[in-house]
């Protein structure tokens, strides 16, 4: 039950993109096609879950016992950068098919602030490892959902005659705003 609440809250109510403003760059950048959006979303689910486990272990087994909690930012970003590289190498060897699908998105993920953001949130909210993993999965599912819907809308918008000044980023942002407004309807669900 507790895990269900964490998931619903992370996917719908406090959607990581639309209400926490994390991962906006990929949200605006790789959302012009539904297929790429799904690829990016899948890569984020994979990396975010692994990164949350890794950073949680680092925080609770190394930084806190040694009284080095102030090195959190440096340690986490290095772990995430290293992890992304590792995932890339392993995927290439183990599953070329998966690598083909996710490979191009992996380098972009290091600077996806959603990964570092979720890692810091998990530690800040004093989740245990299981809760942290559930929260990471929920958050990345929320990212995938928002990205998927947004890409769908943008594909339709290709055919629309938009006023000159609003073309490109402005209309995307306004669309995202309306999507955020729609997600506001989930408030109070948990």
């Amino acid at each position: 039950m507790e895990y269900l609440i964490i998931i619903i809250s992370a996917v719908l109510v406090n959607n990581i993109v639309l209400s926490q403003f994390l991962g906006i760059c990929p949200f605006l950048g790789v959302s012009s096609r539904v297929s790429t959006a799904v690829g990016m979303g899948a890569a984020v689910i994979f990396v975010m879950t692994l990164a949350t486990i890794a950073t949680w272990l680092i925080q609770h087994l190394i930084l806190v016992p040694l009284g080095l909690a102030f090195l959190q930012t440096v340690a986490f970003i290095l772990v995430i950068a290293g992890l992304v590289q590792l995932v890339e190498i392993v995927l290439k060897k183990v599953s070329p098919a998966l690598y083909q699908a996710l490979g191009v998105f992996l380098p972009l993920i290091t600077t996806n602030c959603a990964i570092l953001g979720v890692a810091i949130l998990v530690v800040g909210r004093e989740y245990n490892l299981a809760q942290g993993v559930v929260f990471a999965i929920g958050s990345s599912l929320g990212f995938l959902l928002a990205l998927y819907i947004f890409a769908g809308i943008r594909e339709k918008m290709d055919l629309v005659d938009i006023p000159r000044a609003m073309r490109g980023a402005p209309i995307s942002l306004v669309t995202a705003g309306l999507l955020a407004l729609a997600f506001g309807g989930f408030a109070g669900l948990v």
């Binding site: 000044a165 609003m166 402005p170 705003g177 309306l178 955020a180």
Partner: peptide
């Protein structure tokens, strides 16, 4: 609120572009 952030920035960029 969060939706307002997206909408305000969208229009602001439109103005700057113009």
């Amino acid at each position: 609120m969060p939706p307002g952030a997206f909408i305000a920035l969208g229009f602001l960029i439109a103005v700057v572009n113009t």
